[in-house]
Amino acid sequence: MADRAPHDFGKTVINAAALLLVLSYALPYVYLVSTSLKPAADVQQIPPSFFPDGVSLENFATVIGTAGLPNAFLNSAIVAILTTLLSLLIAVPAAYVSALYRRRITVLFLLFALVTRMVPAVSLGVPLFQIMKTLGLLDTTIGLVLAHTSTAVPLALLLMSAFFEGVPKELEEAARMDGCTRFGAFLHIILPLMPSGLAISALFSFIASWNEFLFALLLTSQNSKTAPIVIAEFNSVYGLAWGPMTAAAVLYSLPVILVTLLLQKQIVGGLTFGAVKG
């Protein structure tokens, strides 16, 4: 037993560090949730209490009753889902081809995709506004989906190309010898090996769209407003409506948590690297 002590000690330190890290991530969120559950009267109490004295769903009731918010949630969901689908539809085949044909030009292509992510969103906002205005897509779901897709595609592209590079090229060749076209090999053999890659790319695209604020603010005004915009407006509409705002924020975070939990298995497991020799 004695000789195991150093090992256990090291483990304890690592666990403590991990716990500290988790707390630093989770604390603001826990505080958000606890605030949203306070009765409206306690929300602005000074000094603030970390744990509510009594649990109340008052704030949630107010939020759900707020005009425009349920609709904004629906808009957010539609935009995020469409963005995810469109991004994957564009990024997955592009990533596969760039992984299959490793040439200077494809490396350049991926690098360029990365660079577009480094341009601050603000500097893209104005031209994007002009473009959408010209196309007559201001304040439309399609317009926002296109804007979000332009930011989600590079990320999905980089992620997927890393996943595709882990697939031995003999698998595609074997499928072609077995009677597949290139596209058939991709569909029957390569894609089914990618549950994690697809799940992670889908999750990132979804979150990128769901969380997006700036473009949504610039490009929507009435019909297609998304949840973050409406939540931010709580301040102006009701003065400082902290209670309902935290409740809305909690509701707003639920889909992301839900999607993550749903895809958890694919994200963590199912790694197919080394598929050939096993």
């Binding site: 698998l171 060749e173 074997a174 499928a175 010898m177 089914p192 050939v276 020799k277």
Partner: peptide, 14 residues
């Protein structure tokens, strides 16, 4: 209409 056996076997893992 040719079949090939690869050095790495290239079996479909899924």
């Amino acid at each position: 209409d040719i079949a090939m056996v690869f050095q790495s076997y290239a079996l479909y893992p899924h």
